[in-house]
């Protein structure tokens, strides 16, 4: 479960950015939530956030759909 979601996030991010090598995802779990932190190259921030966060929103929707069976809250942070 743990690595599956971060791998999904990594795959989606890598597909969108100009520098896939600089994409990384770190995951931290606590009692109530799974926090996925996405890092991309500075110039690629726009590629994963989009106008008014449109891309970030779509990414979160996909991650949440994949985690439908997961009782914990999923938080996707772009840092």
């Amino acid at each position: 479960m743990e690595s599956r979601l971060s791998k999904l996030l990594e795959f989606v991010a890598k597909s969108l950015v100009e520098k896939p090598d600089e994409v990384s995802v770190t995951q931290t779990d606590n009692d109530t939530a799974i926090v996925l932190e996405l890092r991309v190259a500075e110039g690629d921030m726009g590629k994963v956030i989009g106008k008014q966060g449109k891309i970030a929103k779509a990414i979160r929707v996909v991650i949440r759909a994949a985690a439908a069976k997961e009782p914990k809250k999923i938080i996707v942070d772009i840092v």
């Binding site: 929103k57 779509a58 990414i59 929707v61 996909v62």
Partner: peptide, 11 residues
């Protein structure tokens, strides 16, 4: 979800 997947695929 369908809209999100569609949007990401377009990108």
């Amino acid at each position: 979800t369908l809209d999100a997947v569609q949007y990401l695929t377009n990108l």
